[in-house]
Design a protein around this nucleic acid. Structure first.
Length: 262
DNA sequence: CGTTATGTTTCACT
DNA sequence: CAGTGAAACATAAC
């Protein structure tokens, strides 16, 4: 599930449940989810506390009372869960921290594309991993700068985490639908007006989705997400929504509403 | 059985 | 070195 709005939800959930409690145990059922040896995590987590969180795109940084920052990525099928006893541990909570109040923090990850890492600081991690500013904070000038010298489909570009941190597959489709831009439009062929339309649509998708707590059913009717499926119909033109592959990812768009560039 | 899934990383090639 | 595209990764659900 997690793109920017979902991870923002997770951040708020963790802020409300997991801060300022002593961590007494860490359990991991599959070390492939850990980008450092398990003992490194234990060294900086056991007997320490979460103090605050910070989100950039789909990456969630958890600051602690130790000198290290925990980095969480949820992959395609991740979510956090906070529960009171071991019996309530979700089936796919492959990693679990236990607090001294008897509660647990479970990192659910059905498909195991998510992971944990450690870093010295958010800024260092951001630079080392070539992450852009969070898409919610990004300004239009920086957006345009990172597009210059790029030459591929606009959809691939806005899903590039070094361009717009936080945009994923469903958001990219909705952004381009709302901006009325064909997903295969090449960035180098796009005018400033078109780029601004994409940028503005991105901001709108983010703010609405966060406001609705990423609950798709509550999104306005003009969001593609309601018709982002086989058999879907364009809210504006009434035509059938088409499904294609762009950059290897399934892409839904309206051939009438998002005209192909000539 | 084959296909698909809301993501990132790696690698070969330009 | 920088940018691109395709493949790889692991697993469940339809």
């Amino acid at each position: 599930m997690p793109e920017l709005p979902e991870v923002e939800n997770y951040k708020r959930y963790i802020d409300q449940t997991c801060l300022k409690q002593k961590i007494i145990e860490m359990d991991c059922r599959d070390d492939r989810l850990l980008k450092q040896p398990k003992s490194d995590f234990e060294d900086v987590l056991i007997n320490e506390e979460f103090t605050q969180t910070e989100r950039i795109g789909k990456y969630l940084f958890v600051k602690t009372t130790s000198e290290k920052v925990l980095v969480l990525h949820f992959g395609m099928t991740g979510r956090p869960h906070y529960y009171s006893c071991e019996d309530n541990r979700p089936k796919y909570a492959h990693i679990q921290l236990s607090f001294d109040n008897g509660y647990h923090f479970g990192f659910e990850n059905k498909r195991k594309f998510g992971w944990w890492n450690l870093t010295d600081s958010v800024d260092i991690f951001k630079k080392e991993n070539n992450l852009s500013d969070d898409a919610r904070e990004l300004n239009f000038e920086d957006f345009k700068t990172s597009l210059s010298s790029r030459s591929t489909d606009i959809k691939k570009i806005i899903m590039d985490q070094s361009v717009c941190a936080g945009v994923g597959n469903w958001m990219a489709d909705d952004i381009l639908y709302q901006a009325r831009i064909h997903p295969e439009h090449k960035v180098e062929d796009m005018s400033d007006t078109e780029l601004k339309a994409v940028f503005d649509a991105m901001k709108n998708v983010i703010e609405v989705a966060i406001d609705k707590e990423a609950h798709y059913a509550d999104f306005p009717d003009y969001f593609l997400i309601h018709n982002r499926k086989d058999g879907g119909v364009c809210h504006h033109s009434g035509c059938d929504i088409e499904k294609i592959k762009v950059g290897g990812r399934t892409t839904y768009f309206s051939p009438e509403w998002q005209k192909k560039p000539h």
